[in-house]
Each structure stands twice: as C-alpha cells, then as structure tokens.
Write a protein that binds this DNA or RNA. Sequence first.
DNA 1: ACGCCATATACACTTGCGCTTATATACGCA
DNA 2: TGCGTATATAAGCGCAAGTGTATATGGCGT
Lengths: 100, 100
Amino acid sequence: MDVFEAVAEPNRRHLISLLAEREHTAGELVGSLPTLTQPAVSRHLRILREVGLVEVRPDGQRRIYALKPDGLQRIDDWITPYRRFWRHHLAALEQHLENR
Amino acid sequence: MDVFEAVAEPNRRHLISLLAEREHTAGELVGSLPTLTQPAVSRHLRILREVGLVEVRPDGQRRIYALKPDGLQRIDDWITPYRRFWRHHLAALEQHLENR
DNA sequence: ACGCCATATACACTTGCGCTTATATACGCA
DNA sequence: TGCGTATATAAGCGCAAGTGTATATGGCGT
C-alpha cells in the first residue's frame, strides 16, 4: 500500500485531520471514530504508519500517534506540477474579489 | 468512487501525467499504456471522467480527452492545511493571505 | 449499404480491502 | 503474582476494484 491508497480511505483522512491538530493516543482516536471498532482503527493506524504518514511513540501501556510530514509531502510533490492548471483560475477569482 | 480513490491508481496517475502535457485521443492513451488492454484503459478514462478529473470531446469517431483542473484542485485544497507541517515559511504566507 | 476503424460496455474471474469477532500481547497497579 | 486496561494481531467474510475476452455502438470511407 502506498501513500496515495492510504489517503484514499475516508476514515484515514479523518485520522490525519485529528493528528494534524495534536498528538493522540490510540484510544482517543478509537473514540473519535465511533462507527469503527477498536481493531479497525488499529489497522488503519498501522497502515498510516507503514506508509510513513504517522509515527508512534510508546507511553506506558498507551501508544501516542503523531503526524509525520514526509508522506503528505510526497503527495504535494506529485500535485505541484499540475497546479498551473488552476492557478490562472484562482488569479481571476482574486481579481474579481478585489474589483467588487 | 471519489477523486482520492481515482488518483490512488498508478495507471490513472500515468494517464493524468500524459494529459497534463496535452490532449490525447483514447487510442493514443491506450498506446501509452502497453501493459493494459484497450477496454481497461477505456474504463480508467471513464472513472477519471466521472470524478471530474478529465473531460471528453468527440472528434469524428475518436474521443479527445483533456485534463480538467477542478478535481486535482480538490486534492490540493485538502492538502493545503497540512502543508505547514513541512514548510513553515508557507504557513506564514498563508497567514498573510488570510489576513488581507 | 457495407465493411472498417475507434471506442465503449457486458460478463466473468481474481484479488485485496475493510470490517467484525475473537484472541494475544504487554504494561501498570495492588 | 494476578488482574484490569490498552493496543495489536488472527481468522474469516462480504464486497468492490481491476483486468481480460467477447461483444456492442457508432462514425467514416468506398
């Protein structure tokens, strides 16, 4: 599984958004996804770790998860060359906002 | 299928990169993916069209495919808030843009 | 109209994902 | 040492993705 497939899953994107605010224990993340069971969340966290989107640090019997920049940057590097396709569109929008 | 899943497939990313250079007919794209059959490529193009990454224009018996900005921009919009994790100077820029 | 070319769809098959239930591992505390 | 808590792994299942073969659709030229 690569970083693109990892990010394609909505629950994993939710986990990423939570970890972007601050670190969380696995249990907190399980509580934040009430539709999923604990093993399901644990598996998602495993995948996020394997693709380098997340890192784990043990804290007693808990595991603290934190976002890692590297993985998301790989997606950003991929999308960067295509950014020119809507840059001019955005420029036009800003122009419009400034003129009104 | 949403735009994230669409982009998660390597062959579809390849198609996107080809269409970023210029428009292509379906046949040209089939020729650019020698490991896949014509129906397989046709199906990938269908998916890219359904998620708004690509648009089709008929030209006689051929179909000309072109990249559409909207879909990729949605991915870019999603990744933007996380960009501060690896480029702190960009966070300052975003702050500046928000405040003006 | 007929055959040819370009492209799309139907169908069947395999494979891997995401899920749940059940179980294992491991730490903390009395 | 024994128990409860926190987290991970195992096993099994349903389902959808991706693919190939076969076929349909539809424009083009003669």
